[in-house]
Nucleic acid binder design. Structure first.
Lengths: 231, 231
DNA sequence: AAATATTGACTGACTAGTCAGTCATTGTCA
DNA sequence: TGACAATGACTGACTAGTCAGTCAATATTT
């Protein structure tokens, strides 16, 4: 009997939740399609899981909390993921993949290398630092050692590609005479370093001393390209 | 009977360890066997706890494992620390404090600023990157958001001091004409950034692509001070 | 009605923290 | 000095609670 009441409540909740269908996609279709529905569920779980993992770390995150946040029963999670661990791994993949895709959609290389890098990095700052994505990076740094497969994946898909891209830009800059330091091409990490610092700073020390990442980046680029003449 | 063996072993250990009484205070005070022993225990617990926390993170670390590694019963931990959480916090303090102390023991500023920074950073690399201390930094990055008091402490004792020191050096470099970029003084983080990257790289990606931190540092300094003439 | 999807109560393994008891060490007294 | 008492550091079995993962019951879709 307790069961019945609970079920009724659950049913009510579901019915209610089904109406305000404010999904990202604007289609008014009833979504009675089972597959669509399942995909939505999965997306909700991924979203909720990311939130929780970022806030508490892998070990301290409870599946019950993820389920509650996703508006789903715990069992449902196991319809989509084998266990907590592989959920974490798949989650990182799921979130990272579209980022990689966008990286691959290269903007046409026009203008000076400095402008290219500045606009690219500026975009990066805006979309990563201080956002959920930035927190994800910190999460990977935090849990990487215990999830080699995650670290591997991240290295392969993001780090190595990102560095390769940076290296190409640096080579271009060197060829065009914009960059003096030829050795820089050996360490594209140096180009990225301030951005990484900003990500970490944001989540650890922002409250103590706010950091203007954009401005820091500009100073860093001045170091590489030489001081800029008046804008 | 098991008990007897353990006790005997402990006694033996104590006798051996009691001799090299290298306390900070130089007083030859007796330090009654008992107190010495307790201090040793505490040190063993701290050491073991650091190892475990670094390897597994805060939440996934079992006190039983720490106790076992320290050669101590679980209850003993609670004679030294209030609970797991405050153990973690105190542990970070305990390990960091001597580092800060050494930072404060400034080396006399002789030679060029570049040499100063290079030797300082070189030392840093050797003592931090790829060592337990480096792992501790990563641990702080990982757990910081969930332990504000740890992040606060680390910021106050290490980050702010380190940055202030760097800023002083940069100012000196600017005054002496070794550094062109005046704005660099506003972001000493840029000076530190490659070192942080190296710490993180070491623990996440070393296996995929080894990173010569020393060399990277050199390139980075070339960026700041200008390319170096032949060594 | 059958097939499929979802639920959430339940289980069992695991662990932070406790505490009554032990015993080496230290202190006291003859 | 040697015998005895007091101390408190240390132990580890135990408690109380947590949480990942399961599955029979229920709901929904076809």
């Amino acid at each position: 009997m307790t069961r019945k009441l609970i079920q009724a409540a659950a049913a009510g909740k579901k019915a209610k939740a089904a109406t305000p269908n404010s999904r990202a996609g604007g289609d008014a279709a009833p979504l009675s399609n089972r597959a669509t529905r399942a995909a939505e569920r999965r997306a909700a779980i991924v979203e909720a899981a990311m939130e929780e993992f970022i806030a508490r770390g892998f070990a301290a995150t409870r599946l019950d909390d993820i389920a509650k946040r996703a508006g789903v029963a715990k069992g449902t999670i196991y319809l989509h993921f084998k266990d907590k661990e592989s959920m974490f791994e798949e989650l990182v993949r799921t979130v990272i993949v579209p980022v990689v895709a966008r990286l691959n959609a290269l903007p046409p290389p026009t203008g000076s290398v400095r402008d290219l890098i500045e606009s690219f990095a500026g975009n990066f700052m805006k979309e990563v630092i201080g956002t959920r994505r930035g927190d994800l990076v910190r999460l990977i740094v935090a849990e990487g050692p215990r999830f080699p497969s995650v670290a591997d994946f991240y290295y392969r898909e993001v780090v190595s590609r990102g560095l390769a891209g940076m290296r190409a830009l640096i080579d271009l800059g060197i060829a065009r005479g914009e960059i003096r330091q030829k050795n820089l091409a050996r360490y594209p990490q140096i180009l990225i370093a301030p951005a990484m610092i900003a990500v970490i700073w944001q989540s650890l020390f922002q409250r103590h001393a706010p950091l203007d990442a954009q401005d820091m980046l500009r100073v860093h680029l001045d170091l590489i390209f030489g001081e800029r003449r008046a804008t």
